[in-house]
């Protein structure tokens, strides 16, 4: 798995729970080094071992931890550049949902070797969508749920999200949009200079 993904897992654990928890996770997972590097590749087994160790150390069910990671990706102040890149996808939350199918291409524009999930969006009516996501590792459904919940908040939209199970490795997520202008959301200045 790409170092960015591993680095995200490590970053989530250290910023949310502190370096001691990361050290314990690292020890339990038998990681042969102290830190993941964002620009290197690692065997999937290491990623999975770290994640399992994290669930064990934190006494958290896997889906809850994955959802927290998704939320953290959008809301952590250190990851503001990532939030900005996500906001480039659409002027509003609905635009953003529609652009999710472009996520893979968008990710490859930024990092050609980054393997991002394949996402398909089904629109049932103006306010109801189903998202189907497939990734090389299991768990993309709850990650996306945490991420989308935070993005809805970012855009000032009010939405209900629910995991709809897994079919043939495709993880499904239902989005019920209640209000697209529920709050002012967070600001996004397209032309931030000096970035």
């Amino acid at each position: 798995m790409h170092g960015m993904v591993n680095r995200a897992l490590q970053g989530f654990l250290t910023t949310t729970y502190g370096p001691d928890v990361w050290a314990e996770v690292r020890g339990q997972a038998g990681l042969p080094f102290a830190d993941f590097e964002a620009m290197l590749d690692y065997p999937d087994a290491l990623t999975l071992a770290c994640f399992e160790a994290a669930c064990h150390v934190l006494h958290k069910p896997p889906n809850a931890l994955l959802e927290d990671i998704g939320t953290w990706l959008v809301t952590d102040p250190h990851l503001e550049p990532l939030r900005r890149l996500m906001r480039f996808s659409g002027a509003g939350f609905v635009d953003f949902l529609h652009s999710l199918e472009e996520l893979g291409d968008r990710g490859r524009l930024a990092m050609p070797d980054l393997d991002l999930p394949q996402i398909a969006l089904d629109r049932h009516d103006a306010a109801t969508f189903t998202i189907r996501a497939r990734w090389s590792l299991p768990g993309i459904g709850p990650i996306l749920m945490g991420c989308l919940r935070a993005m809805a908040d970012d855009y000032g939209a009010l939405a209900l999200l629910r995991l709809e199970g897994i079919e043939d490795g495709v993880e499904c997520l239902r989005v019920q949009l209640l209000d697209t202008a529920f709050s002012t959301g967070r600001s996004f200045d397209l032309g931030r200079v000096g970035a």
């Binding site: 590097e37 964002a38 620009m39 900005r84 890149l85 480039f88 524009l109 397209l190 970035a195």
Partner: peptide, 19 residues
Amino acid sequence: ELLYLHEANTATMALSRHL
């Protein structure tokens, strides 16, 4: 998209420099 790419490049360059 050019702006997006511009920012993404800046971010990944920073990662490479850190590495």
